[in-house]
């Protein structure tokens, strides 16, 4: 078992009111799975992902990843945890504008103790020919590939993707999904994908649906589809 979430509760205490973003969430996941998280806006998806990723603290319950309870870790230890285990893919790519594609990937491989070969990763995401370009010279889809390459090159155990296709058109979104699937297969990386697109759920091993901070369903796909086959 890769991670286990027990009774996870996250409250935001704003001066106006007490707001419960996650309420007693329990999830278990195996190594190498693709997990898709669905749910309406404001249901707590990002909150959940950020907690798994070691970005958010101040919650109740336990989050145990690879045998470590994240709640017991301090800031520095969380940083180490992220460094070793986590890769992030953001909706708006967030590449560093002053660095070329290759350098953007290098920034991440620099801090890993078991990085993958940069050229190999660039080839895998199909962006080798643009490796000397700057982010502003790329299309959105291409930038998302770089952002995936950047997350993957560290060879993390878990890849966390917060709406990776949210800003992309159909074709680019599909390419991105294929890429994630490829990464999952080739490197055995566990992938969590947040999406508003229910069609994507078909390529997952596990589909989790959240509503108002509570899990409404956890479904295991008996037969998951190839990313290629998904249509929306």
């Amino acid at each position: 078992m890769l991670f286990e979430v027990k009774n996870l509760t996250k409250n935001y205490n704003t001066p106006a009111q007490k707001f419960c973003a996650l309420n007693k969430v329990n999830i278990q996941a195996e190594e190498g799975e693709i997990i898709v998280i669905l749910g309406p806006s404001g249901s707590g998806k990002s909150t959940f992902l950020n907690i798994i990723g070691g970005l958010d603290t101040g919650y109740e319950g336990d989050v145990i990843v690879g045998g470590t309870n994240l709640r017991t870790l301090g800031n520095a230890a969380l940083c180490e945890y992220r460094r070793r285990n986590i890769g992030f893919v953001f909706q708006f790519y967030n590449l560093i504008p002053n660095l070329t594609v290759r350098e953007n990937v290098e920034v991440c491989s620099d801090i890993s103790d078991k990085p993958l070969n940069i050229d190999e990763v660039l080839a895998a995401v199909g962006i080798s020919d643009k490796s000397r370009s700057f982010p502003k010279e790329l299309s959105g889809g291409q930038q998302q590939r770089v952002s995936i390459a950047r997350a993957v090159v560290k060879n993390p155990r878990i890849l966390l993707c917060d709406e990776p296709t949210g800003a992309l058109d159909y074709a680019s979104a599909k390419d991105t999904l294929k890429l994630l699937e490829h990464v999952n297969r080739q490197y055995g990386t566990t992938i969590l994908i947040i999406t508003h697109n229910p069609a994507i759920a078909d390529m997952a091993d596990t589909v989790i649906t959240l509503r108002s901070g509570e899990i409404t369903s956890i479904r295991r796909n008996a037969e998951k589809k190839q990313a290629e086959e998904i249509e929306w």
Binding site: L55, A76, C79, R82, R83, I86, V107, C108, I111, K154
Partner: peptide, 16 residues
Amino acid sequence: TVQIGVLYAMGYRPMD
């Protein structure tokens, strides 16, 4: 600011 956040998320330490 956002870039710094991204670097943090990737595991860069504040000291780095």
